[in-house]
Amino acid sequence: MVNAWLGRGINFGNALDALGDGPELALDERHFDELAKAGFDTVRLPVRWSAHAEALPPYSIDPAFFQRVDAGVGAALGRGLQVVVNVHHYHELCTAPDEHLPRFLALWRQIASRYADHSGRLCFELLNEPRGHLTADRWNAVLAEALAVVRDTNPERTVIIGPAEMNSPDALPALAVPDDDHLIATMHYYAPFEFTHQGAGWVPGAERWLGRTWGDTADENAVRDDLAKVAAWGRKQRLPLFIGEFGAFSEADMSSRARWTAFVRAEAERLGMSWAYWEFGTDFGAFDLELAAWREPLRQALLDDRDPTAGIPR
């Protein structure tokens, strides 16, 4: 099953999806080496295609940018890793879906055609965190159109779909799942948001949450309840589940970050979900780029098969 192959993953966020207003990750061959050596199975490559394509028909993607994505895909596949390529940060589509739908479909037509002959270990994710005017009903229709475009050239490639409301777990019941045998459902998990995003500069009021910790019994039960609902939905839909993003911002204390990460990871695996941590080496990073070393509490939280919270102080 492809979902089992995805297994344990990590996002190379703030690289091919960089917005230019925060830290950026330069994709480097050695980063892929670190992932493979550590024991990860999958790389999720968020890609901001919309910033590198023509605004008017035929909406051609910049060849130089395509080559950057090619390099990331090749580096992952060449090390035996699975890779998820998505459309990330297409905010204009969420603001004006009718206007941008032709461009969105044209992007997928180009992406799907370019990678049609690649290994089945490459998966497509149609859109990261649909939101705004891309409501559940509207997104369900757009999703179906985009999937049809992909299927023209990739009839059996695994495609990852997620719900509206920024891939919220609570929005899964409103996701209309197409009749397709090669789908995985995704959602993102950042609960409680006041813990995982404390001090995040892009979140209004996040400085008020500084100092919030995580790890008591009520905290753990909340995660159990949240993920149990997701798992129940997946069973009902007979659809594998992939937590495409979860992580806690660097302003949270490391002990709480490690406990939360370990608990979410272990609970997801217990329920049969694959996952990808957000993210490798910038503001949520499990890897310290300056020291060229893993932040050991987070590495253990993600990859240690023993009691995931053993030795992490409460």
Rank of each mutant, 00 (worst) to 15 (best):
T196A: 14
A286R: 07
A4C: 00
A18V: 14
R235A: 05
I184W: 00
G234E: 06
G72W: 06
Q198S: 02
V69P: 06
L239N: 02
V159D: 04
T135K: 01
F40E: 02
D17L: 09
R121G: 03
D180E: 12
R314E: 13
T196Q: 11
V142Q: 03
H88Y: 09
A141H: 10
D117V: 07
P102M: 12
D33A: 12
V142C: 08
A148P: 09
L183N: 06
A55T: 15
A146W: 07
D70S: 11
D225K: 06
A15R: 00
G244S: 13
T158D: 01
G234C: 15
L303M: 09
T217F: 03
I312W: 02
I160A: 04
A76L: 11
R295N: 12
A164T: 11
D179N: 11
A232F: 05
D21I: 15
L271M: 03
N3I: 10
A266C: 02
T309F: 04
M166T: 12
A53C: 15
G80R: 02
G120D: 15
N221V: 00
H100T: 03
T42E: 04
E207N: 14
P178L: 07
A176W: 00
W5K: 09
A228G: 03
L143D: 01
A286Y: 03
I312Y: 05
E92G: 10
R109A: 15
D28F: 00
I312P: 03
V142W: 11
